[in-house]
């Protein structure tokens, strides 16, 4: 695609820990009406890293196996710690991921409140420190607080992932200034994780200078998930290119695009 080529000409791959990713979009595998649709949407999104959750095996054999629909040679799996409320729970889930052979990366997510699904940052920091110390490449979901993001970076996280808005809310990037402040000081990749509702939200995150975006519901919950997956891919590329291109400054008054009339 021309857009891909234009991006490749001016951009570098996203480095997460030991991996280099050419797509800056990370997508989830949850909430799809069918695993076939999920597979199509993953392809359309262009993502190279995809999130998965860990849950009890269905011993009735009635649930389709996620692994039957994921080409493991094509995607890097990012297991999450969704559903964990304490450091201990999150660390145990990471250990289970390692047991499953997918424990290189871990999306650390420690929830502090059922209604908002906002993260418990005290538990998140403690878990990040332990898991980074155990050699995990930790991608930490967190609040958009610049001080806490810096603290997470200092624990040794491979990436810090402030929320744009609450998980699944579709409210977009609610505090662009916080994201800017986080980006200004960051020494590790910053990815917006959660809150994306539509393509323009991804473009905004990338134009601000984020290194990537992680989303799930915005595609899986769209009326036409496949079309939205394409849109997200293009928005991610468009936003990234616009960031690299350098936008014009904002002005309060007009500036003519045509030369002054001289006849």
């Amino acid at each position: 695609m021309p857009v891909d080529a234009a991006t490749a000409a001016v951009d570098k791959p996203l480095r997460l820990g030991s991996r280099e990713l050419h797509s800056r979009l990370i997508v989830g595998t949850g909430k799809y009406a069918s695993l076939d649709l999920m597979k199509e949407c993953l392809e359309a999104s262009g993502a190279e890293m995809i999130t998965v959750a860990l849950r009890r095996v269905d011993l009735s054999g009635k649930t389709p196996n996620l692994l039957d629909h994921i080409d493991l040679s094509r995607y890097v799996l990012l297991p999450n710690t969704a559903g964990c409320y304490t450091r201990e729970d999150a660390v145990r889930t990471a250990h289970l991921a390692r047991e499953l052979g997918i424990g290189e990366f871990i999306k650390l997510e420690v929830i502090g409140d059922d209604t908002t699904l906002l993260p418990d940052m005290v538990q998140t920091l403690a878990a990040a420190e332990q898991l980074a110390g155990e050699g995990f490449q930790v991608l930490a979901y967190c609040t958009d607080d610049p001080v806490l993001c810096k603290r997470l970076e200092q624990t040794g996280c491979a990436a810090v992932m402030p929320l744009g808005a609450p998980i699944g809310s579709g409210l977009g990037i609610l505090n662009r200034n916080s994201i800017r402040l986080i980006l200004e000081q960051a020494q590790v990749p910053i990815l917006v994780d959660a809150g994306v509702g539509t393509a323009s939200d991804v473009a905004v995150a990338m134009e601000l200078g984020c290194d990537g975006v992680l989303l799930n519901t915005a595609i899986a919950g769209a009326e036409n998930p496949l079309a939205m997956a394409h849109a997200m891919r293009m928005a991610c590329e468009a936003g990234r290119l616009a960031h690299l291109a350098g936008r014009i400054p904002k002005r309060r008054h007009a500036r003519a695009s045509s030369p002054i009339l001289d006849f």
Partner: peptide
């Protein structure tokens, strides 16, 4: 509630009243 590493499965006894959970991947965000 504790992870039983694969290397220990052959030797790890399961006894009366144990709580066993078997975990694998599912879709998630």
């Amino acid at each position: 509630g504790e992870v039983a590493p694969a290397a220990e499965h052959a030797a790890r006894p399961v006894t009366e009243g144990d709580v066993i959970d078997l975990i694998s991947m599912v879709g998630g965000g």
